[in-house]
Design a protein around this nucleic acid. Structure first.
Lengths: 197, 197, 197, 197
DNA sequence: AATGAATGAGCATTCATTCAT
DNA sequence: GATGAATGAATGCTCATTCAT
């Protein structure tokens, strides 16, 4: 690998993050990225093989970490006696992740259409949906109830995740984010939980 | 002459609605729209100045009606003794709107990026946010509490609306939609309401 | 399929044949073809899906006919008592082909590098090589001789075909071409034949 | 200063010869050449003004030597009583040349499209054509025959040279090359000679 | 009114060549 | 002398829009 100036690479990434945030993967223009990075178009390709590569290098670390986090949460099957404890542990995991990859997660979630990551949001929501069902179904069973249409859980999962992303978008301060996501978890799942009891 | 056949215009709109739904504003192809409307590409431009104009004419009525509905709800200040009643009345209003503009609303909400309507979703959410505050603040006041940061209401509003849109997207049957949105309203605001009591 | 002007299509083909002849498939420029056809670049793509398609449409008929001709000759196994007869029949077949596809054959043979036809020349030569061996081997066998290295047959096949192509390139008059290829066949194979007798 | 290290220049030439052989003049990459020469891309341009210049410096010596050889053979007018003797002497000359410039000749012949040497092959063939005519015409004259169209000689010359190049491309061993070219000379010119006798 | 052929600016990508260090 | 980062024009291709008929 040749020596490439870190500054230029950073300029490209900065410009690219901005461009991907503005227009999403598909609509983003390599010309605009080059212009905003203050370099010639061709020079971008010294640092990144392709638009795809540029996008991937930006979101890949977030994706990898995110996937392993998702996997861990997915495997955690036991229903908890007290939702606040689960909320706390999930929030901790998520915060650890956000600490490093806040912007990249948002690109991954909101702006990845056309790239290989376009299903990330859906995957995440499916996980949350799965977790919700793990919690709620035993409760319903104990009451001999069964929902004929469980799409509402998927809706709640989506709504919750959307709320989570908003908090990430809004705040820079990690402890504030943690507080707000904690509050969201309680409002959503403590109350929600009660609804089915 | 400025006489344009209504039938042709309707065919274009029908094809365009389909195309915007399928691909979103930016990815929609004028060629595909013309082909599906059964007319020549050039002829589309006799009825609509541009892709932009075509999009605007499609979503404009829904937007106008929506805005006035939003205004009405916005103006409705009285806190309700029983959230279910408010839920019912809001759901009724929304359903009335959906009855005519379901598809257009979804285009407006999901597929308007790049057009002048891209902030519609946000506007709607601001309304719901406002309504929530109208409901919650008196309760907090009665308890001598005050939230230092009320962004959580905005988050809840967003999450709720996202859920609402999912339900609209998922179901065709109006009564089913009404049921599910009703359920969502209760889960969100009855439980949520209790949280602050 | 929409109605496309035959004249424009012909202009594109004429310009493309010239360009492919000048630079070969890979180096040919769609911009140059469009310019020489007197139309805008984008318009070329109304008539031909891609550079590949344009090239294929030009050479495909020649290729198909050529392939079937090759197949016929390949299947013809009997050694002939008199090379002149074989020469005559092969020449007839080839001439019939050249009559329609002279230029296209030359593009196929000389200018197809980078396209899916790049092995056509080699395939043709392999056929001729095969035919030569069919003729020569029985003769050698009768003399209890065997060549340890039969690459010389492949060389002769190549040399002969190269000569054939030169004649096609040089003359427009079909009867002249026939005469010259006939002469070439005799020089090559009558004499060559004798060499191994 | 204009002092340039001979070693670096040789490395460039070695890498360039390989690259031109692999991909031909046009497809050859200056980056690849620099990388394989173990130097920086920009440094190539201290030794060679351009890709063109690099190509020219590589094939120039072979071209010069070749041209003078051609000239000698061209000047050698006397018809030979026995073609095998001429074949032998020509083969000797050619082999002497190949000994030093085998690769460069193949580049010149096969890979020079787009450079100023693209006609070298033709020039060589013209020489052989000339020699053939020197041999054949006296024979025809003695028989009071005259070919109205002597293009066939040019064709034979081309076919023969094509065969020669194939042999050079195929074999590395000089004595094997000599044997095969000798065989080719006899097949072509002994038999061919007889044809006109 | 309607047609659909034509336009031209846009896209991602490549590569010979230049130039500041 | 040497480096390799930077340039910019070229490539094939797409598509909203225009315009002669």
């Amino acid at each position: 690998m040749q020596y490439l100036k870190e500054e230029v690479k950073n300029n490209i990434i900065t410009a690219a993050v901005q461009e991907f945030m503005d227009k999403g993967y598909h609509e983003a223009s390599m010309r605009t990225i080059a212009a905003n990075a203050g370099i010639a178009l061709g020079n971008v390709y010294r640092y990144f093989q392709s638009k795809d590569d540029l996008f991937n290098q930006i979101v890949e670390p977030a994706y990898t970490k995110f996937t392993s986090m998702v996997f861990e949460l997915y495997e955690y099957h036991d229903p908890v006696p007290e939702i606040r404890l689960l909320a706390e542990s999930i929030t901790d995991k998520i915060m650890e992740f956000f600490d490093k990859y806040q912007t990249e997660l948002l690109i991954l979630i909101d702006k990845s259409k056309g790239s290989k990551y376009e299903n990330v949001k859906e995957d995440l929501i499916k996980l949350v949906d799965h977790r919700i069902k793990c919690e709620i179904e035993p409760i319903l069973k104990a009451q001999d109830k069964k929902l004929e249409d469980d799409y509402i859980f998927y809706v709640i999962a989506t709504a919750f995740m959307e709320g989570t992303f908003m908090i990430i978008r809004k705040y820079k301060d990690q402890s504030k984010i943690k507080d707000q996501i904690g509050l969201l978890l309680i409002i959503f799942f403590d109350d929600f939980y009660n609804h089915f009891k």
